[in-house]
């Protein structure tokens, strides 16, 4: 979809300029400037100013205070936990996402539509509810609570719960990115490969994977960004134990509630940086995908 949406975008630009050249379809200048002005001022007011504010607040008390807030042990623990959660959730969702998209796009089976709906569930359910589900299932008063405590396995208010909640919330990103692309690409190329004697694995590796490469990378980036930034679901299952079950977003909240604004903004600025890096990679991926001579939208 990365490539496809990019293709639409450039096609749109081209069409836009054509509309502008043609006097029959050209809108009056004031409409153009009004629409441009509205969207740009919204962008500045609601996106750009807050982003700048994060960095300004973080550095308000100088560079030393900023660094001190970040290398503080609890902050480092939060960063580590966030990296662990994303490091587990993203690869797992990579495997789940590819297999779900593969199953939906390439096979016909009963319950296919149900599966597509189910994949969207984490998007439609409030993250808090997602967290509560896990508390209900694995919590000490939940379904498996007694059994788990018997074997001394801690899920809720511990790292496994955070990882589970993160996986749940970020599940749709990769699958959603791949399904439309794989559906438009169809099964022809895979069938061709198999007729030519390729095994299932060779077909996946040499035919399917290269065709979905950019969409897959795009999905992984989005999935990772969400995994690191997730607050609601993780907040419910975490228990907010400092240095143990705090992820970066939770740590920011705690600091803020304790009026440690500089420290809160310092950690928040790391998350903001992550967002900027994500956007940069995403733009690069889209640019690469649009330069590939053999993307799906050229067909």
């Amino acid at each position: 979809m990365a490539g496809a949406s990019q293709g639409l975008l450039t096609a749109g630009n081209r069409r836009g300029s054509r509309y502008e050249i043609n006097s029959a379809t050209r809108d009056p200048a004031w409409i153009k400037w009004l629409v441009l002005g509205l969207s740009l001022s919204f962008f500045v007011l609601f996106l750009l100013v807050p982003l700048i504010a994060v960095f300004v607040e973080a550095l308000r008390k100088g560079w030393d205070a900023y660094v001190a807030a970040i290398i503080e042990p609890d902050a480092l623990a939060a960063i580590r936990l966030t990296l662990i959660a994303a490091g587990i959730a993203v690869p797992l969702n990579l495997v789940f996402g590819v297999s779900a998209a593969w199953a939906i796009a390439k096979f016909d089976f009963p319950g296919k539509h149900f599966l597509i709906t189910l994949i969207d569930l984490p998007f439609s359910v409030s993250p808090v509810v997602a967290g509560l589900i896990y508390v209900l299932v694995f919590g000490s008063h939940g379904w498996f609570g007694p059994w788990l405590s018997e074997y001394d396995i801690k899920i809720i208010f511990a790292v496994p719960g955070i990882v589970l909640a993160t996986i749940f919330v970020t599940f749709p990103f990769i699958a959603r990115e791949l399904i439309p692309l794989m559906q438009t690409q169809g099964r022809d190329e895979e069938e061709a490969a198999i007729v030519l004697g390729a095994s299932g694995w060779q077909t996946f590796w040499h035919v399917t994977l290269p065709n979905i490469k950019w969409a897959l990378i795009y999905g992984v980036i989005l999935c990772n960004a969400r995994a690191m930034g997730e607050f609601g679901a993780v907040s419910v299952v975490s228990g907010h134990i400092r240095g143990e079950t705090n992820t970066m977003p939770l740590h920011v909240e705690i600091l803020y509630n304790e009026y440690q604004f500089t420290a809160a903004f310092a950690v928040a600025s790391l998350l903001a940086l992550l967002a900027l890096v994500t956007l940069a990679i995403k733009t690069y991926v889209e640019w690469r995908a649009s330069r590939e001579p053999n993307e799906v939208f050229e067909e």
């Binding site: 004697g197 390729a198 290269p210 590939e292 053999n294």
Partner: peptide, 27 residues
């Protein structure tokens, strides 16, 4: 069997050469 598809089903990320060589290389 050799099968030629209606919409060609060429591997879009491979060159013409690699497309033709595919059947030999996956042996």
């Amino acid at each position: 069997v050799g099968f030629v598809f209606q919409h060609y089903a060429l591997f879009r990320h491979m060159t013409v050469f690699d497309n033709i060589a595919f059947g030999l290389r996956v042996r």
